[in-house]
Design a protein around this nucleic acid. Structure first.
Lengths: 208, 208, 208, 208
DNA sequence: GATGAATGAGGCTTCATTCAT
DNA sequence: GATGAATGAAGCCTCATTCAT
């Protein structure tokens, strides 16, 4: 029972692959987890599957993320941050708050369609108990400026005077619906049309 | 444990509901499952917890529902059906398709607020892999008439001429956002205001 | 992924064996755990081994003991209690505190030799962090009367006037050494001699 | 992390001990392991924790000790040896075997109190399966001369004529109890009293 | 000599499901 | 119909050990 201890274990694999580029297991795990969580949900995705698909050992996952929860938290934070960045492209160019908001909406739809897995992930875990409260708060923080923008627009007179919380909430949910719908249309020009119709739908409800 | 139950077969065993009919075990299980699935998710709710909270033995649950999957499927079907019924109250009274649609929207919000657990359940499992495809399809079927209604409205000229699928999809997601937002406001008159503003938002985007 | 759920699982085994006597899995588990913990230590004994040796499924162990820790706690409490009972046989017959104490010592050695696994278990886990503090306290409580007995003896004049805590502690450790030594001697009459010599050693140190 | 260490080979890298010689990694590991094994047990102490607390890399530990088992073995051998040396201080001065034995007992108690971690370690692993049989045997060998000493005393007439094995065993266990008890008393003079009372207890049982 | 990322067997525990009563 | 002890696959995570740098 004691001597059984010395089996062959551990097997340090070169930290770089043949091309000399570090494969970076941490990133491989994050990428794999994103796909799997999105496809199968949190509980539907065993850590063992994540590591297998990522091509690393089970232990490796836990070397980088002490807990399955920490893994999804990390993913959530990162994606929320990326989404916020994706939304903001060039929106400074617009003059009015309404213009900025529409630009942001357009960016959001574009980002969502280009990053379907990320978008689905965000949708799925937006209110999930598997993501920690602090991660949720941090994620939300990137979007708080939108409420201010809505406020600006109302003061400016370009945006209808409704409860900014309500407007924010409904705009977010409509955009999400729009992304989903636009994504199903693969033809570029028809997709573009859908996006514009959808944004019209939303901004008819928003603008004064 | 629990107070010994043994009176008469199919009889008493504790509280009767208002009608004096004992809520049979099947119903107790469904009601408990609704609450728990909503609060804790599918994988977060062991069948053992459902049966314990429902006050029945573990085996009893499996007598009525051979599988946990069948249980959530049953729940999903039933709630989708109830939701559809709830939306349709009095909508025949309205003359135009737009009027009908707005009535349905109002009903939907009302139903969602009065049945928060059911609403949350629907949201949560709307795209869930735990609900079978057939249950999803059956659930969807109750809402298909809405697309026709949108088509009617376009032909009628009361509804803007956008892709009905898109309109349906965005209306659904906006309503969902509105329910969530309205539910957070507990004051009746302020809540009413939010609902109206929200419906205006949506129908500004819809009407011609 | 969903349908995979319905594999053949669970396999209720008759609660009684052929003789009609309930095999009582709970007791089988306790007995097996006693042996294995004694032979291999707490961490050296996987729960899987306990259940295998006890002839039950892994789940069964956790049905009775929600935790490996609870299992060893239960064992500890029970054995401490048995040991205390074993020590007290007929000690009421003796007149003096010293006499009672010697009777108890004799009983203790006898019990330890007749129950070597239990004795070894007590020794091994007497100060173990795997046993909860409350179990340790409960275990200790059965032996507290001994300190009073020592106090009686000192007042009576039959026992030397040393710190009762010290006396108690040294008596306990000596007895333990005596049990170990006596157990190695299998010949009954030589064993008896060892026991008497050992008790003499101890009580020479104790009596006035 | 940690302060970069790189000066000169075998040099500095932080604190030097009294002799100005840097306690090399091997010693740091042994010292850390002693503390941790004592506080948390063998299985309760991951090698990773040992190396972290010792301020070395995981690999370093395995450079010096190919196995966790070899590490505890080394520790056990060393401590047993130190304990034996500690017991023997000045015992040559005594004339009779009884005197020598009492001197040894006194030294043993003193050593145990001054080296509580070492003492606890010895107690804890005295019968442990984690320490190899050969290490146990080697450890025991340092104490074999005591049996001869007992034999001498019996022949001499200063020690009671009991089975030397029994005497040795009981003396060892009593001393151990005494150390534990004395250690709890922090006041020097009261501690001294306890030690003397304890030794009296033991030697009343030993002397003729 | 030293480092620490990587490995994967194995440990504890959960839980859907069965079936004798 | 109802019960609940029993089952065992599978999940999350730990940790001794290795080896390229």
């Amino acid at each position: 029972m004691k001597e059984k201890r010395s089996i062959q274990r551990g097997q340090a694999k070169g930290a770089k692959n043949k091309a000399g580029i570090p494969p970076d297991n941490r990133e491989k795990i994050l990428a794999t987890a994103l796909t799997l969580f999105t496809e199968r949900g949190f509980f539907g995705t065993p850590t063992s599957l994540i590591s297998k698909e990522a091509g690393v050992a089970t232990g490796t996952l836990f070397f980088y993320f002490p807990t399955k929860g920490k893994l999804i938290d990390t993913l959530y934070r990162r994606i929320k941050c990326e989404a916020a960045k994706g939304m903001c492209r060039d929106f400074g160019r617009e003059k009015t708050a309404l213009g900025k908001l529409r630009r942001i909406g357009l960016n959001a739809v574009g980002w969502g369609i280009e990053n379907p897995a990320r978008h689905k992930f965000m949708e799925q875990f937006a209110h999930s108990p598997f993501v920690s409260t602090t991660a949720h708060e941090e994620g939300m923080s990137h979007f708080l400026f939108l409420k201010e923008l809505v406020g600006d627009g109302i003061r400016e007179g370009t945006i209808r005077n409704i409860d900014p919380d309500l407007l924010f909430c409904m705009m977010a949910s409509s955009l999400s619906g729009l992304i989903a719908q636009a994504y199903t249309e693969k033809d570029p020009s028809r997709r573009k049309k859908i996006i514009e119709e959808g944004l019209d739908f939303i901004f008819n409800g928003i603008k004064t």
